[in-house]
């Protein structure tokens, strides 16, 4: 389990190239990070449909909106830190309000950016994006699902924010969760393992950690369900309600501020459908710092061990 590795960014580049071949209405925009986030792979193959806007993210987003208004499916992105925060005006007032076909796919979400430090570690993006009407928010957990999601959303009209991460393993890779493939359905989450004592909802790089935590708990006689909560909006409330009922306690785990993120979305659904104790694992309302991703994950409590502790707390008080 989780032995194979893959790069989310490379999967993004490959998905764009495949989309470019199958759909002539796909255009791609970047902002001086196109080699790094691999959207440049599309540019190399389809230069007439690829636009590098330079270090000018608000214009990047505004131009993507214009292309979408003219009928294009515009994939625009750079590092996550430069889009949701810097461009929330353009995203809210044009792209979301007009329900435009703009897919904002950003890499380097979360603290796993590592040595660049707090200024580059986007820990608030899920909260910022999910509060905007019409916006869909997706945080894939591995390279296999990235490829499927990036391609699938071309067929779903309207705006998306997709957050990719750099990876925790050397070479900017992360463990592959979906060795047997992944099929994306908007609004449907993937139950990776069923359980009866605690339901763990994880997204992004916390999905492998949740699986490890569940395995460790199993050895101690605790049965944990694990869900890849990749689509935070629209949320699969049916599955959340079902597992809250079935397990009686819930843990969430995300590489994001625990305020306003995926854990908050799950907690909102749990309180609505079947109130039980929810423990949220994530970055506890603070900024990150420089360091290697694995060191930071340990320091900020983004680990299987922390998930297991949270599960014990959730079960005790349920």
């Amino acid at each position: 389990m989780l032995e194979k590795l893959g790069s989310m960014r490379s999967a993004y580049g490959e998905a764009l190239v495949e989309l470019g071949g199958s759909r002539s209405d796909v255009v791609v925009l970047g902002a001086d990070t196109t080699e790094s986030i691999k959207s440049g792979m599309f540019g190399a193959k389809y230069p007439e449909r690829f636009f590098n806007m330079g270090i000018a993210e608000q214009n990047l987003v505004g131009v993507a909106a214009g292309l979408a208004l003219a009928g294009k499916i515009a994939y625009a992105g750079t590092y996550a830190i430069f889009v949701p925060g810097k461009c929330v005006d353009q995203i809210r007032n044009i792209i979301a309000y007009a329900d435009l076909n703009v897919k904002l796919v950003c890499s380097h979400g979360g603290i796993s950016v590592g040595p660049d430090g707090a200024s580059h570690q986007q820990l608030e993006d899920i909260a910022i994006m999910r509060v905007i009407p019409k916006m869909r928010v997706v945080v894939p957990s591995d390279s296999v699902s990235v490829k499927s999601i990036v391609k699938s959303i071309a067929d779903i009209h309207g705006p998306f924010y997709v957050r990719l991460t750099r990876g925790v393993v050397k070479g900017s890779t992360s463990p592959i969760v979906y060795e047997d493939g992944f099929e994306y359905k908007l609004g449907k989450l993937n139950l990776l393992r069923d359980g009866s004592d605690v339901a763990i909802f994880a997204c992004g790089l916390m999905v492998p950690e949740a699986l490890l935590a569940a395995e460790s708990m199993k050895a101690k006689g605790v049965s944990a369900a694990v869900v890849d909560a990749h689509t935070i909006k629209p949320l699969d409330e049916e599955l959340v309600a079902k597992l809250a009922r079935q397990c009686g306690s819930v843990v969430t785990a995300e590489e994001h501020n625990i305020i306003g993120g995926m854990g908050s979305a799950i907690a909102e659904a749990v309180t609505k459908h079947h109130p039980v104790k929810v423990e949220r694992v994530g970055v506890v309302d603070r900024f990150g710092e420089s360091g290697e991703a694995t060191e930071l994950f340990r320091k900020y409590g983004l680990t299987a061990a922390r998930i297991e502790e949270a599960a014990a707390v959730a079960r005790k008080s349920s």
């Binding site: 608000q58 993507a64 909106a65 214009g66 292309l67 208004l69 003219a70 353009q90 007032n93 044009i94």
Partner: peptide, 13 residues
């Protein structure tokens, strides 16, 4: 401040 960016997108299309 956004309209010219959107215009650039329309013109590029």
């Amino acid at each position: 401040g956004i309209g010219l960016s959107v215009g650039v997108g329309e013109a590029l299309a």
